[in-house]
Amino acid sequence: MITLTVNGKVHQTEVDTNEVLIDTLRRLGYKSVKRGCETANCGLCTVLLDDKAILSCSLLSLRADGKHILTLEGVREEAKLLGGFLAEQGGEQCGYCTPGLMMNTIAMKRELVDPTDEEIAHYLMGNLCRCSGYVSQLRAIRQYLEV
């Protein structure tokens, strides 16, 4: 039995010893968290753990015991802002990469001051997107960083 605080809500749940956080979160109903690979390459599964962006596919749920987790469902205001810019640019194409990208972008905004385009590209390098070609997302992220 572990205790997870997800988006401010406390969950007590049984987990298998080899269960990874993404599966626990999806089982608890946080379906925004997506999986795109088995090799920690795609970034789709990004959530914030105690305010740090992590890959939820690569963390054993047991290790998240007692921690605070934020998923896209839990960041309404920022999601609305960033999501609005993405939508204006058409950067949310199929949208499958969008939750992970948004979570990492939110973490980046808290961490980097006035990043250049290259710094943004490097920070978000682990967030693959096959649909957009990235440049529309960069335009949206720039707008988001400016507010």
Binding site: K31, S32, K34, T71, L72, E73, R76, A79, K80, L82, G83, G84, L86, A87, E88, G90, E92, G95, Y96, T98, P99, M102
Partner: peptide, 15 residues
């Protein structure tokens, strides 16, 4: 904007 943009950018269970 895309008609489903707010569902996508708020992480709705639609897949």
């Amino acid at each position: 904007k895309k008609i489903d943009s707010s569902a996508i950018t708020s992480g709705k269970p639609i897949y």
